[in-house]
């Protein structure tokens, strides 16, 4: 028997009072233990979907089940299993991190002594223990983000939803946060992540859904999605040379400036012919890199092609 999915979203719709149709029948399934990316451009419907799942937005239609519990008919059972790290800061800035965590546990009916132990555990793990008694308003931006993760862990959720948790956070803190979330995921917690840092999603997530204009336009494994990318673009740093660019079959070469070329080619195309042709013109390549990460390229293409479909 297959396990009960961590999340089953079934034809969810949402039309706001303003008439904006944020979700147009969204369906997707997230398996237990998955690290799932939910990506989409701004205004695509990601936060509305997360809002409905976490009980902050009323759905207009459809249903969702968290480990088999309907968010409409068994709201309390469903909410018991979810931990939410929202996009916007939403704690009382006059309380301390310790109070915020212990109170949050209290809202889930967790006894105070257990709540205090968990608060210490997660504040320590997220390097916030030194600040446990400082008013939350005095914390740095990165600390506030980590505090929201610690708070979301207080009910030890089976499904952790992270809505752009690293927005505006420096790279070092971002990596520390991902290490923590990866460990949580390895320990069995299902994680759903929305982020604008697509390289993070590519590195962390096993499965992915892309939402645009309230519709899921892609829902597959990260491996399968990245396999669809057939073209790669390289940026080549070259020695200064004004020689004409060579004509290499299957490769589109563009000069960006005196020291930089851009080469777009099929993923299966060999690089030797490109280097040989450049060398023959006296152009020496000193270094090269991918123009964008693979997921970013795919993401842009999918969203652009969806825009084309919508316009047609």
């Amino acid at each position: 028997m297959s396990p009960v999915p961590a999340l089953e979203v079934d034809q969810l719709t949402k039309t706001y009072a303003s008439g904006v149709q944020a979700l147009k029948g969204v369906s997707l399934t997230v398996q237990p233990g998955d690290f799932f990316a939910l990506l989409g451009p701004n205004g695509a419907g990601k936060s509305t979907l997360i809002g409905i799942l976490s009980s902050l937005v009323n759905a207009s239609g459809g249903d969702a089940r968290v480990f088999g519990h309907s968010i409409h008919r068994e709201r309390r059972a469903a909410m018991q299993m979810i931990g939410l790290v929202p996009q916007e800061l939403n704690f009382n800035i006059f309380e301390t991190p310790f109070q915020i965590c212990v109170n949050s546990a209290g809202f889930y009916g967790i006894a105070r002594d257990v709540a205090m132990q968990r608060a210490e555990k997660y504040l320590r793990e997220l390097s916030l223990w030194e600040k446990m008694d400082a008013p939350a308003r005095t914390l740095s931006g990165g600390m506030k983000r980590r505090l929201m993760i610690a708070r979301a862990m207080m009910n030890e959720p089976r499904l952790l939803i992270l809505d752009e948790p690293t927005a505006g956070v420096d790279i070092e803190i971002r990596r520390a946060m991902w290490r923590f979330v990866s460990e949580i995921n390895r320990a069995g917690t299902t994680v759903i992540l929305t982020t604008h840092y697509l390289e993070e999603a590519e590195q962390l997530c096993r499965n992915i859904a892309i939402i645009d204009k309230g519709t899921i336009i892609e829902n597959t494994s990260m491996k399968h999605l990245l396999g669809k990318l057939d073209v790669e673009t390289f940026v080549l740093d070259v020695t200064a040379n004004d020689a004409a660019l060579p004509d290499v079959p299957g490769v589109r070469i563009v000069r960006l400036d005196e020291h930089t070329l851009e080469a777009e080619m099929s993923r299966t195309h060999d690089l030797n012919s490109l280097f040989a042709a450049l060398s023959a013109r006296g152009i020496t390549v000193t270094s090269m890199r991918n123009k964008a990460n693979r997921l970013e390229e795919l993401f842009v293409r999918l969203v652009e092609s969806n825009a084309g479909v919508a316009a047609a």
Partner: peptide, 17 residues
């Protein structure tokens, strides 16, 4: 104040009736 500061959401996302 809880609405304005959005920390009312701490309660709304919980299973508390």
């Amino acid at each position: 104040g809880a609405k304005f500061g959005r920390y009312v959401e701490e309660m709304l996302v919980s299973p508390m009736p």
